[in-house]
Computed example of a mutant assay.
Amino acid sequence: MSSSQSLACACGRFNLLVQGDPITSVECHCDSCRAAGARLGKLPCARSMLGPQGGTRFVLYRKDRVRFTAGADQLREFRLSPGAGSRRVLASCCNTPVFLEFKGGHWLSLYAGLWPDGTLPLLEMRTMTGDLADASFLPDDVPNLRNQSVSFFAKLMKAWIAMGFRSPAIDVKGEIRA
């Protein structure tokens, strides 16, 4: 296992610590990530969630390897619709995207913008490119998967087994509307 890394929001009021190696490092091109990125990108002082090709970069970590060390009271959730099973969580102090969480998930998809320049883990794959009208513009530097692959789900399953099949809850108070 690698060492710990401290990450922070743009203004520094919210901090977290990740321990060990990530599950994987991906760029998602699903309709939901692109829609959320467009909506949340309009918030005051917001960092863009969307990369040059319109995808959202995430580094996936087991929940038991992520610890909020300061400013957890700044976290607010955003859902694309009231009944949505996934939520995006931002640091409300500066509207920095922090993580995407799937209902019942044992991992957090941490937004790439949290990593200081030059420290972001290398991209391993692009997922959900099947949601794009035309994915031919994407570079071929990593696999461009129409959906998630068997290896993607195998990595998630391996992490869940290592966690003893637990899915810790993360309490977030308040919402952001965009």
Score class of each variant (00 low, 15 high):
residue 108 L to D: 03
residue 75 L to V: 07
residue 175 E to R: 15
residue 125 M to F: 09
residue 151 S to C: 05
residue 105 G to C: 01
residue 167 S to G: 10
residue 137 F to L: 10
residue 156 L to S: 10
residue 30 C to G: 02
residue 31 D to W: 12
residue 4 S to C: 09
residue 94 C to Y: 08
residue 136 S to L: 02
residue 156 L to H: 13
residue 147 N to T: 15
residue 145 L to V: 10
residue 92 S to N: 11
residue 144 N to K: 13
residue 43 L to F: 04
residue 134 D to I: 07
residue 169 A to N: 12
residue 108 L to T: 07
residue 32 S to E: 12
residue 87 R to A: 08
residue 16 L to P: 05
residue 62 R to F: 05
residue 107 W to K: 05
residue 65 R to M: 11
residue 62 R to C: 12
residue 116 P to L: 01
residue 14 F to V: 07
residue 131 D to Q: 08
residue 113 G to T: 12
residue 141 D to T: 13
residue 126 R to Q: 12
residue 128 M to P: 00
residue 6 S to L: 13
residue 100 L to G: 06
residue 41 G to N: 04
residue 153 F to N: 15
residue 55 G to S: 03
residue 144 N to Y: 05
residue 113 G to N: 11
residue 69 T to M: 11
residue 94 C to W: 07
residue 9 C to L: 10
residue 37 G to N: 07
residue 176 I to H: 12
residue 69 T to I: 12
residue 82 P to R: 02
residue 5 Q to M: 14
residue 106 H to L: 01
residue 137 F to H: 15
residue 74 Q to D: 12
residue 79 R to N: 02
residue 174 G to K: 08
residue 77 E to D: 11
residue 79 R to M: 01
residue 100 L to C: 07
residue 96 T to I: 10
residue 176 I to K: 10
residue 165 F to D: 04
residue 34 R to D: 05
residue 136 S to Y: 03
residue 173 K to H: 15
residue 130 G to M: 03
residue 82 P to K: 01
residue 73 D to N: 13
residue 114 L to I: 07
residue 61 Y to Q: 04
residue 71 G to R: 08
residue 110 L to W: 08
residue 66 V to G: 04
residue 87 R to F: 00
residue 30 C to Y: 02
residue 126 R to K: 12
residue 57 R to Q: 10
residue 126 R to F: 06
residue 28 C to Y: 02
residue 71 G to D: 06
residue 9 C to Y: 08
residue 40 L to Q: 11
residue 131 D to I: 01
residue 154 A to Q: 15
residue 77 E to I: 00
residue 124 E to H: 04
residue 51 G to V: 00
residue 72 A to M: 12
residue 96 T to K: 10
residue 128 M to I: 01
residue 143 P to T: 03
residue 144 N to G: 06
residue 178 A to P: 13
residue 82 P to G: 02
residue 50 L to T: 04
residue 127 T to L: 12
residue 23 I to D: 01
residue 20 G to T: 03
residue 154 A to F: 10
residue 93 C to V: 03
residue 11 C to F: 06
residue 18 V to I: 14
residue 13 R to M: 11
residue 151 S to Q: 15
residue 103 K to C: 09
residue 119 T to K: 10
residue 115 W to C: 05
